[in-house]
């Protein structure tokens, strides 16, 4: 038997919840302090997802919605990296789900009011499980920036949404990856809801020219770190173990 506990979150390296520059947070962000308590079984055991849920094209967004193998519009990119915990241990079998706008900055979603065109060959939806070394890779299209109503009309930098499950519910993470060099990053209130510069920069996918040259596609590297889980072994092991 071993006891597990999650490393406490450092909220200074996360976005502020109540951040009026991001207008939607005004009536949605809770005002009270969160209650802290020690990790229990609920937060530290599962869920884990089986590889049999993953289809062959799930991590290829250029093909998983295309009709007759027609490529979506825009330029293809590789987005890759590793998922590890705060102790630098790679996490095998982490489920990564991504979603994004198409090359014109339009989501395949009824609530997207941006007048840009949809792409009939692109849904913007993909997923994969990390390998034994924590590695993941997606083939997709460079998402476009797009306007949205906030304090008047503002522009979202190019980004891909990431949802990640590690080994436990307490490691659950939802975030966004941005693209190195995008001038819209520093203007974005959602990015700026993170005050810490180093934390902010950790969300920027870095252009990897060596991988780009090998594959003849632009490649962006985005490493993800989930919370560490400490294990304490009880001294009731059988002799000889």
């Amino acid at each position: 038997m071993n006891a597990k506990s999650l490393i406490k979150r450092n909220y200074e390296k996360h976005p502020e919840i109540d951040f009026p520059d991001y207008k939607s947070s005004i009536f949605r962000a809770p005002k009270n302090r969160k209650i802290s308590f020690p990790s229990s079984n609920t937060e530290t055991i599962g869920p884990i997802f089986n590889k049999n849920i993953i289809g062959k094209l799930d991590n290829d967004l250029t093909l998983n919605f295309s009709k007759n193998k027609i490529s979506p519009l825009g330029h293809k990119i590789i987005v890759y990296g590793t998922v590890s915990d705060q102790f630098t241990n790679p996490i095998k079998g982490a489920l990564i789900e991504i979603w994004q706008a198409n090359a014109a900055g339009k989501y395949l979603h009824d609530n997207d009011e941006n007048p840009a065109p949809i792409d009939p060959n692109f849904a913007g939806c993909g997923r994969c499980l990390t390998s034994s070394s924590g590695y993941y890779e997606f083939l997709t299209i460079q998402p476009g920036p797009y306007p949205y109503p906030n304090r008047g009309i503002e522009w979202r930098p190019m980004h891909i949404h990431f949802s990640i499950f590690g080994k436990s519910f307490g490691q659950r993470l939802i975030t966004q990856m941005y693209f190195e060099g995008d001038p819209l990053i520093k203007l974005c209130p959602m990015v700026n809801s993170i005050r810490n510069e180093k934390a902010k920069n950790s969300l920027i996918g870095v252009l990897d020219t060596s991988k780009s040259n090998t594959k003849n596609l632009l490649a962006y590297k985005f490493d993800i770190v989930l919370r560490g889980i400490k294990q304490t072994y009880f001294e009731n092991r059988k002799e000889g173990l």
Binding site: K13, I98, G126, T175, L203, V225, L226
Partner: peptide, 24 residues
């Protein structure tokens, strides 16, 4: 006591279109 070497990746909002990735 084992010290964490890395910071957890920061959160960002899931936004209004999360269905595309999570419940297509």
């Amino acid at each position: 006591t084992i010290k964490a070497k890395l910071d957890e990746t920061p959160f960002q909002t899931a936004g209004p279109f999360l269905h595309i990735g999570c419940m297509p």
